[in-house]
Deep mutational scan, measured.
Amino acid sequence: NEEPLPEGWEIRYTREGVRYFVDHNTRTTTFKDPRNGKS
């Protein structure tokens, strides 16, 4: 039961299956979860 991502964020996966987060607001990507700060 995960809380929803902030507005404008999306979860994607690399070809290796590593989860990362896309911030469409700033057009950046990060491996850090914007909901809780954990990677």
Rank of each mutant, 00 (worst) to 15 (best):
residue 36 N to Y: 12
residue 12 R to A: 09
residue 18 V to D: 07
residue 33 D to T: 00
residue 23 D to W: 03
residue 16 E to N: 15
residue 19 R to I: 13
residue 38 K to E: 15
residue 17 G to I: 01
residue 30 T to R: 04
residue 13 Y to H: 08
residue 29 T to W: 15
residue 11 I to F: 06
residue 31 F to W: 10
residue 16 E to S: 15
residue 18 V to Q: 11
residue 1 N to V: 14
residue 32 K to T: 13
residue 2 E to N: 11
residue 34 P to R: 00
residue 11 I to R: 06
residue 37 G to T: 12
residue 39 S to N: 14
residue 6 P to T: 03
residue 16 E to R: 15
residue 18 V to W: 11
residue 30 T to N: 03
residue 21 F to T: 01
residue 32 K to S: 10
residue 31 F to A: 07
residue 14 T to P: 01
residue 22 V to L: 11
residue 37 G to F: 11
residue 1 N to C: 14
residue 38 K to Y: 14
residue 3 E to Y: 09
residue 30 T to I: 04
residue 2 E to T: 10
residue 38 K to I: 15
residue 9 W to L: 01
residue 1 N to A: 13
residue 15 R to D: 09
residue 9 W to Q: 00
residue 5 L to I: 06
residue 1 N to P: 13
residue 13 Y to M: 07
residue 2 E to F: 11
residue 34 P to D: 01
residue 17 G to E: 03
residue 23 D to H: 09
residue 22 V to P: 00
residue 15 R to W: 10
residue 38 K to Q: 14
residue 37 G to K: 10
residue 35 R to W: 04
residue 30 T to P: 01
residue 21 F to R: 00
residue 27 R to N: 15
residue 27 R to K: 14
residue 31 F to Y: 11
residue 17 G to K: 06
residue 13 Y to W: 12
residue 7 E to D: 13
residue 30 T to A: 04
residue 27 R to L: 09
residue 33 D to C: 02
residue 3 E to K: 11
residue 32 K to F: 12
residue 37 G to S: 12
residue 32 K to P: 02
residue 8 G to P: 03
residue 39 S to M: 12
residue 3 E to L: 12
residue 35 R to I: 03
residue 8 G to I: 02
residue 28 T to L: 09
residue 30 T to V: 04
residue 31 F to M: 12
residue 19 R to G: 04
residue 30 T to W: 06
residue 33 D to M: 01
residue 19 R to W: 05
residue 39 S to K: 12
residue 28 T to D: 05
residue 2 E to P: 10
residue 5 L to T: 03
residue 22 V to I: 13
residue 37 G to V: 11
residue 5 L to F: 06
residue 36 N to K: 10
residue 25 N to R: 08
residue 6 P to D: 04
residue 27 R to I: 06
residue 30 T to Y: 05
residue 33 D to N: 02
residue 7 E to H: 13
residue 24 H to D: 04
residue 17 G to A: 05
residue 26 T to L: 05
residue 5 L to S: 02
residue 10 E to F: 07
residue 8 G to R: 05
residue 20 Y to P: 00
residue 27 R to F: 09
residue 2 E to L: 10
residue 23 D to M: 03
residue 24 H to P: 05
residue 23 D to F: 05
residue 6 P to N: 03
residue 22 V to N: 02
residue 36 N to W: 11
residue 1 N to W: 13
residue 7 E to V: 12
residue 23 D to S: 05
residue 29 T to A: 13
residue 38 K to V: 15
residue 3 E to T: 11
residue 1 N to Y: 13
residue 33 D to R: 02
residue 35 R to L: 03
residue 6 P to R: 06
residue 19 R to E: 07
residue 36 N to G: 13
residue 15 R to E: 10
residue 2 E to K: 09
residue 36 N to R: 08
residue 8 G to E: 03
residue 13 Y to F: 11
residue 39 S to T: 14
residue 21 F to S: 00
residue 24 H to R: 09
residue 16 E to C: 15
residue 8 G to M: 04
residue 11 I to N: 01
residue 20 Y to D: 00
residue 18 V to Y: 12
residue 35 R to T: 04
residue 23 D to N: 10
residue 7 E to W: 10
residue 10 E to H: 07
residue 14 T to N: 09
residue 2 E to A: 11
residue 2 E to S: 10
residue 16 E to P: 05
residue 21 F to K: 00
residue 27 R to G: 15
residue 4 P to R: 09
residue 32 K to I: 15
residue 17 G to Y: 05
residue 15 R to H: 11
residue 28 T to G: 05
residue 19 R to M: 13
residue 34 P to S: 01
residue 15 R to I: 11
residue 21 F to H: 00
residue 16 E to W: 15
residue 20 Y to N: 01
residue 24 H to L: 10
residue 12 R to P: 00
residue 24 H to I: 09
residue 6 P to S: 04
residue 9 W to H: 00
residue 31 F to T: 10
residue 25 N to S: 08
residue 30 T to S: 09
residue 17 G to D: 04
residue 10 E to A: 08
residue 4 P to L: 08
residue 27 R to V: 07
residue 25 N to C: 12
residue 34 P to T: 00
residue 18 V to T: 10
residue 9 W to I: 03
residue 7 E to N: 12
residue 12 R to T: 04
residue 3 E to H: 10
residue 14 T to H: 02
residue 13 Y to A: 04
residue 39 S to V: 15
residue 37 G to D: 14
residue 15 R to V: 11
residue 5 L to P: 15
residue 32 K to G: 06
residue 23 D to T: 01
residue 3 E to S: 11
residue 38 K to N: 14
residue 17 G to F: 05
residue 9 W to Y: 04
residue 29 T to V: 15
residue 4 P to H: 08
residue 9 W to R: 00
residue 3 E to N: 11
residue 4 P to G: 10
residue 22 V to S: 03
residue 8 G to H: 06
residue 27 R to H: 14
residue 6 P to K: 05
residue 26 T to P: 00
residue 32 K to H: 14
residue 20 Y to F: 11
residue 20 Y to L: 06
residue 8 G to T: 02
residue 37 G to A: 10
residue 1 N to H: 13
residue 35 R to G: 02
residue 11 I to A: 07
residue 26 T to Y: 04
residue 37 G to P: 12
residue 16 E to F: 15
residue 3 E to A: 12
residue 12 R to L: 09
residue 27 R to Q: 14
residue 34 P to K: 01
residue 12 R to Q: 08
residue 38 K to F: 15
residue 13 Y to S: 04
residue 32 K to R: 12
residue 23 D to Q: 05
residue 1 N to Q: 13
residue 11 I to E: 08
residue 24 H to W: 12
residue 11 I to L: 11
residue 2 E to Q: 11
residue 10 E to P: 00
residue 36 N to S: 13
residue 37 G to R: 08
residue 4 P to S: 09
residue 37 G to N: 13
residue 38 K to W: 14
residue 18 V to K: 12
residue 8 G to S: 04
residue 6 P to I: 04
residue 15 R to G: 09
residue 36 N to A: 12
residue 11 I to D: 02
residue 14 T to A: 02
residue 26 T to K: 06
residue 26 T to Q: 06
residue 23 D to R: 03
residue 29 T to I: 15
residue 6 P to M: 04
